[in-house]
Write a protein that binds this DNA or RNA. Structure first.
Lengths: 144, 144
DNA sequence: CTATGTGCAAAGGATTTGCAGGTAT
DNA sequence: ATACCTGCAAATCCTTTGCACATAG
């Protein structure tokens, strides 16, 4: 993503082949990935890349507003790529199979805005996760 | 809380003075506390209590449904006591002073229910946090 | 009695940092 | 040239575990 490259330049930071690869793969994979998974993927292209570089690049992406750290309660931080076209979505996590579904709801957004306003606050960002069970009997996603 | 004591007995677990103290203080303090803060408080009463006991007791409280672990992104797990009278609330976190405000909204709850239903899911639990900025000019809570 | 709990210290897992080279600009 | 980056390993932070002793039921 060239938006990221130009942001780097503005900040006086450098473009390196490791960093570029990590960022490229991060956006191509386009899922709620964690550092370990990203490292593994990236090592398929450049085997000598280390943990530190992946963590440092992810932190950079977060600082520059290209990724959002997420904690789904499994002990590791996952990172959600921000494609600047899409509005910020929420998540529904299946309690049975751990599938993560993204959603967006205008009415919900309006309500949250109203709630915050009522308390004299303006929302900067939010975290909304619904942990839910599939209603379909004998759902194919169900584990165990 | 005696509800907790009886739950312990049912599970064949024991009541000890450390455990009782930790649980008592946890509910008295009644805030989004982390293990370290709770340990510190409890050591004011029994200086020899160790980290492990606090962590083990908190885990017990969570397992038995008396506390909810929360991650507000500051690297530590905080625990929210569940007073069985109150319905499960959400949080608004001030991005300036980190104050945590609890809230409840019926219309919001209905909307979330509708959203999940539309995707063929039933909500088991949710995590909703609004990170927001105070609208009051020169808010006294503002840091820095 | 004997299963469960405690305190300590050591282990664990995820993430960060220090350092001695590398390498973009 | 000279910041900035990298890889490695060591360090750090929060949390869990192993173990020998203590204690509740």
């Amino acid at each position: 993503m060239e938006a990221f490259s130009s942001r780097l330049q503005e900040a006086g930071l450098k473009s390196t082949k490791q960093r570029d690869l990590i960022v490229e793969r991060f956006f191509e994979l386009d899922k709620h990935i964690n550092a370990e998974e990203l490292l593994e993927d990236v090592r398929g292209h450049q085997p000598r890349i280390g943990y530190a570089t992946v963590y440092r690049t992810l932190k950079l992406l977060v600082e520059q507003g290209f990724a959002l750290p997420k904690d789904f309660g499994d002990g590791q931080t996952r990172y959600d790529p921000i494609h600047n076209q899409d509005p910020q979505h929420d998540h529904l996590i299946c309690v049975d199979c751990r599938k993560i579904i993204e959603f967006n709801d205008e009415e919900l957004a309006r309500r949250l805005h109203t709630i915050a306003e009522g308390m004299q606050y303006s929302i900067r960002r939010k975290k909304l996760e619904l942990y839910a069970e599939c209603q379909i009997p004998r759902c194919p996603n169900k584990l165990g």
